[in-house]
């Protein structure tokens, strides 16, 4: 801190300004979760201290939220997201490696298929996909929730871009040492790819964490309901319980925050530091 230049201070000020701007709506959501329902929209305009701080505090919404099956829904969301990340990383790194490293006939066709797969709007194919999954008997099951997230064209694309950036000397050296493709993948490429794998994990985690229409169709039973759907259910045709919805949103954003903070250090360790990249 003491070594920071004026320029550094200015840059930090810009970063902080953006950070505050981005977090302001979240702050409003979080404090609204602690307001009585009829105070939530009361201090919008003109601005006052009470716009950003509750002047009457209640824990009623938090209690309502956690006495509903919300804990189960949070567990389901986490479980589905983590299982998707684990399964998806295996499937997608293998595919990306083949597309980046192995020269085989039809490579660009397969790559195009991967690209097309993430251009297809998921909501628009939800109904036929539902029929496919029902054919496998996967309604109201974790598998039905997880599977559509695993073959993720976007993740394959991201990892392929990263693998293409690794120098070809690496695999040539491996070949000379008598390594097969799998060994090159496992012993050379993967260890260099930790930051890219984390980015890939982020894509798949967010895909599942944000998923709404699909979980609603395939797994509406309380045992399998995910958090985004559980939160939406605090609004019905005749009343919307904003306090509880905001409380739910607060917790739903806190969990990824904790995970992100835990992974913080990996974002900053780069391959470049080890000199592994061309």
């Amino acid at each position: 801190m003491r070594n920071m230049s004026a320029r550094g201070a200015l840059q930090l000020a810009v970063i902080a300004a953006f950070g505050l701007l981005f977090v302001l709506p979240l702050w409003w959501v979080s404090i609204s979760a602690f307001r009585p329902e009829d105070d939530i929209f009361r201090y919008l305009n003109p601005l006052s201290l009470w716009t950003f701080f509750p002047n009457r505090v209640t824990f009623e919404h938090i209690v309502t939220l956690w006495t509903s099956p919300f804990a189960r829904a949070i567990f389901n969301s986490l479980f589905v997201a983590i299982a998707t990340v684990a399964g998806g990383l295996v499937v997608c790194t293998l595919a990306a490696f083949a597309l980046a490293v192995i020269e085989f006939p039809g490579r660009s066709l397969v790559f195009t298929i991967m690209i097309v797969s993430f251009l297809i709007p998921f909501d628009a194919i939800a109904v036929p996909l539902y029929n496919v999954m029902r054919g496998f008997g996967l309604q109201n099951s974790y598998l039905g929730l997880i599977l559509p997230g695993i073959g993720n064209g976007l993740t394959v694309f991201l990892l392929r871009q990263f693998f293409l950036g690794l120098p070809s000397d690496l695999r040539e050296a491996g070949m000379i040492d008598g390594m097969g493709y799998f060994q090159i993948f496992w012993r050379i490429y993967l260890p260099l790819s930790v930051p890219a794998l984390i980015s890939a994990g982020l894509i798949m985690f967010i895909f599942q964490w944000q998923a709404y229409l699909w979980p609603l169709l395939i797994a509406p039973a309380t045992e399998y309901k995910v958090a985004a759907v559980a939160i939406a259910q605090f609004s019905s045709a005749y009343d919307v319980n904003f306090g509880v919805i905001f409380a739910g949103a607060m917790f739903v954003s806190l969990i990824p925050m904790v995970i992100l903070v835990a992974f913080q250090q990996y974002f900053t360790t780069s391959v470049a530091a080890t000199g592994g990249k061309e």
Binding site: A126, L216, L217, Q233, S235, S236
Partner: peptide, 9 residues
């Protein structure tokens, strides 16, 4: 299911 999603369901 949430009110807005009843039709889709």
């Amino acid at each position: 299911v949430p009110f807005d999603s009843m039709n889709a369901t």
